[in-house]
Every structure is written in C-alpha cells, then in structure tokens.
Design a protein around this nucleic acid. Structure first.
Length: 314
DNA sequence: CGTTTTTGACCCGCGC
DNA sequence: GCGCGGGTCAAAAACG
C-alpha cells in the first residue's frame, strides 16, 4: 500500500492557535466514506495513511506532538478561565435570586399558590404556582407528606410532547394550560398497578422551553417495573434513591446544582458528583470520539499539515 | 377490541 | 358569595 493522499472537500479548522492556521495550507482531500459505519475501510485507510506519513518523518512527529502539547496546555488554561467565570456568574445569580426572594416576601401575592416548600427551594425551573407557599395549611401539610419531588430534563424544544421516559408506565388523564406558563401541563397517573397512587405533572419551563419540569407525587406501591437505567437520557445522572423516585437527573450547567439539591431535599442518598469541568470535558470527549466523521476529518487535517511540512522542506 | 390520549366540563380551594 | 385557576373526570377519538 502506498501512502498517497487524495483531495477531499472536507475543511475543518481545528487549530485553536491563531498564529498557526490550517487554512494557510492547501486544502487536501481524503478518500473514504466518513461516518459510514458499515464501511470501515475508509477510516482505516486514513489511519494507515497518517501512520505512513508520520513514520517517514519522526522529527515532524515530535514537532507536531510538541505543538499539540502546547495547544493542550492553552486549552486547559482556557477551561480554567471559563470555570472561574462560571463560578463568578453563579455567585452573582445566587445574589440576584436572594434579592428577588426578599422582594417577593415583602410584596403580598394576589393568590396563594399551591404546592409545598420543596418547590420553593428547588424550583428555579419550577412554576411559580409551585413556590412560596404558606405554612400551616392542612392541605399543604398533607402534600408535604405526599413525597413530592421535581426533576428537570433536557428535551428537544421542537418536540412538543410532554413525555418523560422514566421507566414507569403512565396514563395521561389531563392537560391544562396554566396561567403563568404558555406551555400546557400534562397530568399522569401510574398505570403499572391500578392502585398505585403516584401522580406526575410534566410541563416545560417558562424560562427555558428546552427544559421539561416533571413533578412526582406519592410513592409507588408496587414492585419497580424495572425502569431502564439511564432512560432519562445521556446527560442525566442516575442517583440511588430511597423513595419511589428512582432518578434525580443533573442536566446542563446550573441544573447540576439544582438537581442535586432537589435530591438532597427528597432524602435521596448523598451523591458524589464530578466537578463541572470534569463533566464538560467528559461529555465533549465522549461526543467527539463517537463521531466518526469528526475523527476522520481530524485525521485529514493532521495528515494534510504533515504533508505540507514535507513539501515545504523539499 | 382493549388501551391510551384528547379535551371540554366539572369540582374545589383560595382570595377578594 | 363570586370569580379565578388548578386539578380531575369521563366521553369520544385515536391508536396498535
């Protein structure tokens, strides 16, 4: 096999170093069917091609490795800065929330909302009708006993369905448009067992329509219908629960904290959580490495640069 | 044909 | 007592 590389229309700028731009080099092409998992020959050929190029130029390999190492360092520093900015923004948000809640307490509400204190604590993405309840009401005391819990799920905003796949079987018995949220609220009952008292309310967040807010009420009185682990989706974290609510997902950036706080509030066992940066890096790495097109294009860019060095030296 | 979803009507608690 | 708004019911429609 020879180590020739053909031209390809692919053109991805992967160079984060502004002084070292890829488009300074001639566009090259890669033969193959990227992303087609049924035909692995294309990608394998690219890897072989790159390996052939690199093996011919050990010095070049070292140079390239050094450059990538420095870029990696830069990226790490950038990530640290982003993390610091995030922390600063979060503390500012906390201050804002605190001042907002103080002003809400000082101004009387027109109508006493239903719900319990739980929502007040965890309800950043909850509805306003579920927050700021008064103490002392017998109904609310009953609700507090009823094991109410809220989860937040990332959902496709274009998908209008209010379906939360949590592994249990639900029967929808109502849907309502509430006053303070344009998106409808769906009411579900657990249909796995006829006598199961668990109810679920699902509604999109007012602030972010891509967030589904699901409120669970009650406790399943039947054996778990073996909810599939991870059925909440990729970005959700399975949390061992002590009650009927098996999942306490942590989604997105600020939702991580909110989700976990809600877990703690519902007496769910304490959970070790990786740092935000770690989560971000892992998710990015996972997404990129699973994308065969990306890896193929990455290989294409690297090989084109190597070839260019080769030509320049000659 | 059984199950699930839709949707308008009704019920009930709360604030005024 | 009345009106508002959330929650539930139940008949009809849709679905598999």
């Amino acid at each position: 096999m020879d180590c020739s590389i053909e031209d390809t229309p692919l053109n991805i700028d992967l160079n984060v170093n502004p002084s070292h731009r890829i488009d300074e080099y001639p566009k090259t092409e890669l033969r193959g069917d990227f992303g087609d998992e049924g035909k692995p020959t294309g990608r394998q050929e690219e890897i072989l091609t790159i390996w052939c190029s690199l093996s011919k130029q050990p010095d070049l390999l070292i140079t390239e490795l050094n450059r990538m190492s420095s870029e990696n360092k830069q990226l790490t520093e950038l990530l640290a800065i982003v993390g610091e900015n995030y922390s600063a923004m979060r503390s500012q948000l906390a201050k804002l929330k605190q001042s907002n809640s103080e002003s809400e307490l000082s101004s009387p509400r027109k109508r006493k909302p239903r719900g319990d204190d739980y929502f007040h604590v965890t309800g950043r993405y909850g509805n306003t009708d579920n927050c700021c309840s008064d103490e002392g009401s017998s109904k609310r005391a009953k609700e507090a006993k009823a094991n109410v819990s809220t989860i937040y799920l990332r959902a496709d905003p274009s998908d209008k369905s209010l379906v939360v796949k949590d592994g249990y079987q639900w029967r929808k018995y109502g849907q309502k448009v509430t006053r303070d949220n344009p998106s409808p609220r769906a009411y579900y009952k657990c249909s796995y067992a006829p006598t199961c008292p668990v109810k679920k309310k699902v509604q999109r967040s007012v602030e972010d329509p891509s967030i589904l807010v699901a409120s669970y009420e009650g406790e399943h009185n039947h054996n778990n219908s073996s909810p599939a682990q991870g059925s909440f989706g990729l970005s959700q974290v399975l949390v061992p629960g002590s009650n009927s609510l098996p999942y306490c997902p942590t989604i997105g950036l600020d939702l991580v904290e909110t989700g976990l706080r809600s877990c703690a509030k519902t007496s769910v066992a304490e959970v070790k959580v990786p740092s935000l940066q770690q989560i971000l890096v892992e998710q990015m790495a996972s997404t990129l490495t699973r994308n065969s097109s990306f890896t193929a294009e990455l290989a294409a860019v690297i090989s084109s640069k190597i070839l260019d060095y080769d030509l320049a030296e000659k």
